[in-house]
Nucleic acid binder design. Structure first.
Lengths: 198, 198
DNA sequence: GTCTATATCTCGATAGAC
DNA sequence: GTCTATCGAGATATAGAC
């Protein structure tokens, strides 16, 4: 039992290494240009061995998406401890600004992945990236609702849409300042929002 | 001379067919998943014949980008005839809303292409999509400047960034309503903008 | 359980007949 | 100028030795 437990632990540790490597490399190179060899090298695992842990390349893409989802959950979890919904939303925007160099280099991990998956003719993994984005939309809408603002879903759409837009432009123009400029505007916008009933 | 003119005309007509086909197919399937056979089929040109008109696949990608740039020039040219910069900017947003079904299916042609090209390790065609986006940024900034608004470049960034964001979300969520909702907000925003000096 | 070797496939690009 | 046949690179996935 200890032996089998060790084996399982070792196996799942390699699985975790592969998952983390997949998230990093797929973000930087995209799904289509990334080979299994790229991911295996990054994870320090022999190429052929990958198939012991993942049956197909798409399973690795799915694992990367789960990783991004977990990262997002961690972030919103930390933000939830901040006092008040407005501080939480502003904390989110500040996090985006802090990640400006990464955004300029590779864009939003989930957003760029959603673009790539959207180009697939077969419906493979379609909407899986969208589900992660929707999760962020729901969290943001919850904060706007707590602020007693009208149409919280629309406000969440505006916020997340702004993030995806500024990430795409920062990436396309290779200019992290895009994140700073739009981020500053969003912070100001969040400060200006007042409940309908005063 | 008539003969050589005919030949050239026929050749450039096939070149135009290939360019238009490339723009359509690359938008729908992305650069990586699109094969030369796909483009040749769409243009009704034999596969091997493509290389008579374009030396590499990347030349076709570049041609598609030029096509998008020409399409954008046509649009801004028509908008320039509208009376007043505010009407021109609102006309742009209305065009985005009108294209909502396409945006939900395939995203913004230039934006999604910029994402894909951004994933390349070599710098091939890097920034070429960014140049098209920058062209739109410049046009929008010119309108905001004509409205005598402060920081016209920031306003242009906000507008174009919002467009890319709503296109990405409409595509990721497969929901054209995203375009309508965000588009309506942008129209309202444009109406609300007032010059600093009254 | 781990890794090597390789089968198989697809695509970009080329050579050369017509 | 037009098209066919095919090469060669590089990828995923598998078979099987250890």
């Amino acid at each position: 039992m200890t032996n089998s437990g060790d084996r399982r632990a070792r196996a799942s540790q390699k699985r975790r290494r592969l998952t983390a490597a997949a998230a990093r490399v797929l973000h930087a190179q995209g799904t289509e240009r990334t080979t299994l060899a790229d991911i295996a090298r990054e994870a320090d695992v022999p190429v052929g061995n990958v198939y012991y842990h993942f049956r197909t390349k798409d399973e690795l893409v799915r694992a990367a998406l789960t990783e991004h989802r977990a990262h997002l959950d961690g972030l919103t979890g930390r933000l939830d401890r901040l006092p008040g919904p407005r501080a939480r939303l502003k904390g989110l925007v500040e996090e985006w600004i802090a990640q400006r160099e990464t955004a300029a280099r590779h864009g939003c991990p989930t957003g760029t992945l959603a673009v790539e998956l959207g180009k697939r003719a077969d419906g493979t993994l379609e909407g899986e990236a969208g589900a992660v984005i929707r999760h962020l939309l729901d969290w943001a809408a919850e904060q706007f609702r707590a602020l007693r603002l009208p149409a919280p879903d629309d406000l969440a759409l505006t916020l997340v849409s702004a993030y995806q837009g500024m990430s795409l432009l920062a990436n396309a123009l290779r200019d992290p300042d895009v994140m700073s400029r739009e981020g500053a505007r969003l912070l100001h916008w969040l400060d200006s929002l007042q409940p309908a009933d005063g």
